[in-house]
Write a protein that binds this DNA or RNA. Structure first.
Length: 576
RNA sequence: GCACUCAUAGUGAAAUGGAUAUCACGACAGUCUUCGGAACUGUUAUUGGGGGUUCGAAUCCCUCUGGGUGCACCA
């Protein structure tokens, strides 16, 4: 992807320059860092090499820095304008006009490939995420996992891997029995209703059933009977409701995936994973698993003091979630044999997953390094805001619809076709939600405040989109301009140019840490620097001799923003 | 009780061990109707407490405090 390496190998180039100098000074090279200083006043790149070596050379870091600088100055490459010493002994590199001009050319050449890297070239990576359960609502946690999983998939894809998207759904188990019981009590809904409404009705039936299970002994017994029937499929009435409800909720989920922009390659179901896992567990009783109080368990703490014991087959002989997870993991490797299998879930599954993965690692030592579990915090609500605009319990779906509705009212009196308005509502509404999830690092919980998430200025997805749309508007309008005699390149360098070439480094970082927020944070800085440029520079003026270059700059900004938003799973609208 | 995880302006966040800790919202004061104002400029305020490692700590180690999550037949 990066054939013309001049621009984004700048970091390596500087590193090599310094290594050569160290070698000439007969100093053994060890780790030093090259980074972007926090402020452009301190240059475009900076190294701490002088501070790292000063002590063992028994010299003052500033003196040593000066020595390196004088060596550098002897043969400075044309991409570097100057080198300076600052602070306690930092060596700062200021890039040249030529470098920035070249980087813009490079972006225009690479287009949708701009920002890609080869860090996982040739690998096959499977990412499992979203994981909603049929018969239950698509709740906010699913929305969060989906946004994160989709973004990680795209970041991994940008690093050269073949990506396989997987979704794992719980279509058997007590929650299904509770929902069926609720449906038996309340009756089937009108099948002319939109599929989303029917799914919501099923979700309500689940809530009813779940409540009765906790409060009513008879209901509890009946639900347990239904649960068995779901597994053995002996009751026609239960089968009928089951098939209908499973179909309706899965279809409703598909509508949501469509809005969110996710296309899965594989759908795995607990009902199918259970027998596969159970066979594996039973074959390894006495080896990996053992009997305890009538159940089949895995003693995690025997292998790692931080782990604990978990039940894999309960005392009634039924496989638990743990066993299904084993079936799932083995099935993934059987079907696709990925180099790496990533699972994205909320943090509450972290401990459970460690135990299960330990058990799998003992069964298949070669898989240990090929499983990765990424966890994220939960979405909580600012106090007292637990209901959606329609007054219902907030689900992932209602949140999406509400967000889209807000955008719809915002574009209502714009001069746009109703088709355009609908598309913008979707693209911008989804962006507001996704960005508010992806801007934070994965570890901590997100306090979700509806009022704030729909404020579209500043640190938000719509702000980024709006900035891109502005850039696009200039480019469209520029078609009427005669660009002859307007091809001079400015002698000054804007902050926009200083940010824009860093994009591939940001993508690398997001990939290496599997943290989408690096992209989100960067794009906000980039957008802000574009808006500053936009505010200070009137491009489309007859007597502006820099138009050609500035339009290229706008174009490369637009491309960078578009590619960056893509990595967050956000579309860039033409208008809004 | 044990384990995991988190703690940064009034609020929400950022910062491969680096320089004067950034960004947004809010508040206050301006620009201005522009190549699209969902914009720009300026002011404002911050690393939970205590030790340690280091030339250098929001970051690493120890400890305390305070949230969240998980710890046997749910998923």
């Amino acid at each position: 992807m990066r054939e013309a390496l001049d621009i984004d190998s700048m970091k390596e180039k500087i590193e090599n320059l310094i290594k050569i100098i160290l070698k000439n000074l007969e100093i053994e090279s060890k780790n030093f860092s090259i980074e972007h200083p926090s402020d452009f006043k301190m240059g475009d790149y900076s190294t701490n090499v002088a501070m790292v070596f000063a002590k063992e050379l028994n010299t003052n870091p500033k003196e040593f820095a000066l020595k390196i600088k004088s060596e550098l100055d002897k043969n400075l490459p044309k991409e570097i304008e100057k080198v300076e010493i600052a602070g306690p002994g930092f060596i700062n590199f200021y890039l040249s006009r030529e470098f920035f001009t070249k980087s813009i050319e490079e972006i225009l050449k690479q287009k949708e490939n701009w920002g890609k890297n080869n860090l996982s070239k040739g690998m096959k990576i499977m990412v499992e995420y979203t994981d909603p359960n049929p018969f239950k609502p698509f709740h906010i946690g699913h929305l969060m996992t989906n946004a994160i999983g989709e973004s990680i998939s795209k970041i991994v894809e940008f690093s050269g891997a073949k990506i396989i998207r997987a979704n794992y759904q719980g279509d058997v188990g007590p929650h299904v029995a509770k929902a069926i019981y609720g449906i038996e009590k309340s009756g089937l809904p009108d099948n002319n209703l939109p599929i989303g409404d029917q799914a919501q009705y099923i979700g309500e039936c689940y809530a009813t059933g779940s409540n009765l299970y906790d409060t009513d002994e008879n209901a509890k017994k009946e639900i347990e009977v239904i649960n068995k029937k779901v597994y053995d499929k002996t009751d026609d009435e239960v089968n009928k409701i089951y098939n209908w409800g499973r179909g309706v909720t899965l279809e409703a989920f598909e509508e949501i995936y469509k809005i969110l922009g996710t296309k899965f390659n594989h759908y795995f179901f607990e009902s199918e994973m259970a027998p596969i896992g159970e066979k594996i567990v039973r074959e390894n009783i006495g080896k990996v698993f053992s009997e305890s109080d009538g159940a089949i368990v895995f003693h995690g703490e025997e292998h790692d003091t931080k782990l604990h014991t978990r039940v894999f087959i309960n005392s009634q002989g039924l496989p638990t979630y743990e066993t299904k997870e084993i079936g799932l993991t083995i099935t993934k490797f059987d079907k696709e044999n990925p180099d790496l299998s990533i699972v994205v879930t909320a943090t509450e599954q972290a401990e459970y997953m460690k135990v299960v993965q330990k058990a799998i690692s003992i069964l298949h030592p070669d898989l240990e390094s090929r499983m990765k579990h990424i966890t994220h915090g939960m979405m909580r609500f600012a106090s007292g805001k637990m209901s959606s605009r329609k007054g219902n319990v907030v689900t992932g779906e209602s949140l999406l619809r509400d967000s889209m509705d807000i955008v719809r009212t915002k574009v209502e009196d714009r001069e746009l076709t109703s088709l355009e308005k609908e598309s913008i509502s979707k693209i911008v509404g989804v962006s507001a939600l996704k960005y508010s999830i992806l801007k934070s690092s994965l570890g901590s919980d997100i306090i979700y405040d509806f009022e704030k998430s729909i404020s579209f200025d500043g640190d938000s997805g719509p702000y980024l989109q709006y900035t891109a749309v502005r850039a696009n508007a200039i480019l469209n309008k520029a078609n009427n301009f005669d660009l002859q005699n307007k091809k001079e390149i400015p002698d000054y360098i804007t902050d926009l140019e200083k940010f824009i070439y860093q994009f591939p480094e940001v993508v690398d970082k997001a990939y290496l840490n599997l943290e989408p927020h690096h992209v989100a944070t960067y794009l906000t800085q980039l957008a802000s620097s574009f808006n500053t440029f936009y505010g200070n520079t009137k491009i489309l003026e007859e007597n502006n001799i820099h138009i050609t270059y500035q339009l290229d700059l706008v174009k490369s900004f637009y491309q960078t923003m578009k590619n960056g938003l893509y990595l967050l799973g956000i579309e860039t609208p033409e208008k809004m």
